[in-house]
Design a protein around this nucleic acid. Sequence first.
DNA 1: ATTTTAAACTAATGATCGTTAGTTTTGTAT
DNA 2: ATACAAAACTAACGATCATTAGTTTAAAAT
Lengths: 188, 188
Amino acid sequence: MQSTKQKIQDAAARLFRKKGYNGTSMKDIAQAVDIKAASIYNHFSSKQELLQNLLFDMANFFVKGMKEITTSTLNTEQQLEQLITLHIRATVEHTNAVALIAGEWIHLEEVTKMEYIQLRDQYENEFEALINKGKEEGKFVDVDTEIILFSTLSTLRWLYSWYSKNRDYNFIELERQMKICLIEGIKR
Amino acid sequence: MQSTKQKIQDAAARLFRKKGYNGTSMKDIAQAVDIKAASIYNHFSSKQELLQNLLFDMANFFVKGMKEITTSTLNTEQQLEQLITLHIRATVEHTNAVALIAGEWIHLEEVTKMEYIQLRDQYENEFEALINKGKEEGKFVDVDTEIILFSTLSTLRWLYSWYSKNRDYNFIELERQMKICLIEGIKR
DNA sequence: ATTTTAAACTAATGATCGTTAGTTTTGTAT
DNA sequence: ATACAAAACTAACGATCATTAGTTTAAAAT
């Protein structure tokens, strides 16, 4: 059985995704959990806190996953494969929260937004370093690193959208195909 | 000199992108144009109409471009190249409006939203048909068409984000690199 | 110069929203 | 059974918002 607090978080993620942060009222969230809007404040101090929890949980999930991968003994190509797996796992396990990453972070209040962007940039920089490493090792094709990064990341970030329409797609197969699509294309 | 009407549209695009549709008030838009909120209604009948104009202008831009390309005499690979050029052109010429495609279409009112989704699906289907054609001709690699489509489209759709941070990047070079990145990867 | 039209303004309306205060209910520990 | 804490409720607040009505100003046409 799910706790009320967890139910509120889940409903918030789903509604923020469907109607946007500002388009979702505390009443909407409360109704989805079958309580009154004021009761949410027994569990969270504000609507903004709900958004922050969702976004930072995901940001930390990715930053932590990146750290584990880059400090492993896997070779560069294997590390890139693991990054793809990381994104697929996040998407499958937290589809709605992942969807918020695409656009709803703009509704974080100013100070928090800057902290969030910092985490995102950190992640991107480590991703970029990995691609550069592969290029230095002569394993990857000679295309501008930033363009490879942006092309790869955009695909991984958009995955939630595709996954929402193809939830029955074979999971292992998706992983295999994405690795071909994203890695074979840049191998030399 | 830009007309007031055009200035309102441009400000709306910029603000919708920065603060979201619901996060942007008519007063915000008016202030950006240095008039009062009520004066906007001399040019547009509602805030919703502003969003609709922006999104459908872009949707029509893409649908029309697709039609021109697929009815041309170019071969499959060249047509795919032209599609990339189309997205780059849209992004450079209408950066803010293109940015709205990623997330703000959810704020279209219900009936209009369905029309919009229909246009989007039509575009995606024609894109998919092109990839299938390339595969049948034995020109493209044997990866699930939907995955190639989703990977390619997500990169093209996210381009506005990258472009916003790299406006000084050499334009011709971007086009060349993107074609390598998106087409070489799926060629066989 | 006069009329007409377009586009700005002021002021107000009704609705919704996030949040708070105060109260009651529910469940748990003693 | 009683006491306590957690979590629900009702009611109300101040603020903001999209939009409308009515008025004034500016520009264009006659």
